[in-house]
């Protein structure tokens, strides 16, 4: 468990170094995720400790978003001014995005499966 947590941190750390060194536009944890995935593919299976640590963290994923979200309180003036626009844009755009992505992937995936059969 502790070893697993260390592996996650080391992957994030390596991600951090790569992002800094290559001046990449994306955050280090995502690069860390790619590193861990590559490591797991090479190793061929997930060591028990890493699985335990990961499942522990992922089961509380929602809680981890709370501190950043409370930051909304800093922007109450802008939210008050553009509130309706923001809410409309969020709802409509999310619906359209779900629709387009879902339909495209569903069609493409079905085609692919029929092709292979």
């Amino acid at each position: 468990m502790l070893f697993g947590f260390l592996v996650l941190l080391v992957c994030q750390f390596c991600g951090e170094i790569i992002v800094r060194y290559l001046d990449l536009p994306f955050p280090s944890p995502v690069v860390g995720m790619v590193i861990l995935l590559a490591g797991l593919i090479m190793h061929g299976e997930v060591p028990k400790g890493i699985r335990q640590a990961s499942e522990g963290l992922l089961s509380y994923l929602a809680l981890l978003f709370v501190p950043a979200g409370v930051g909304l309180m800093v922007h109450y003036q802008l939210i008050a001014a553009d509130g309706l626009t923001i809410l409309t844009a969020l709802i409509l755009s999310t619906a359209i995005t779900l629709l387009v992505t879902g339909v495209i992937l569903d069609r493409l995936a079905k085609n692919k499966i029929t092709q292979e059969q």
Binding site: C11, P29, M33, L57, L63, V70
Partner: peptide, 25 residues
């Protein structure tokens, strides 16, 4: 508030790395 809450916020990093496991599965 964030001064203290950053310790919870920090775990978002390793949690993102941990997404590699379900992906591998």
């Amino acid at each position: 508030y964030f001064e203290g809450a950053q310790f919870i916020h920090f775990l978002l990093g390793p949690a993102t790395v941990a997404l590699a496991i379900p992906l591998f599965d």
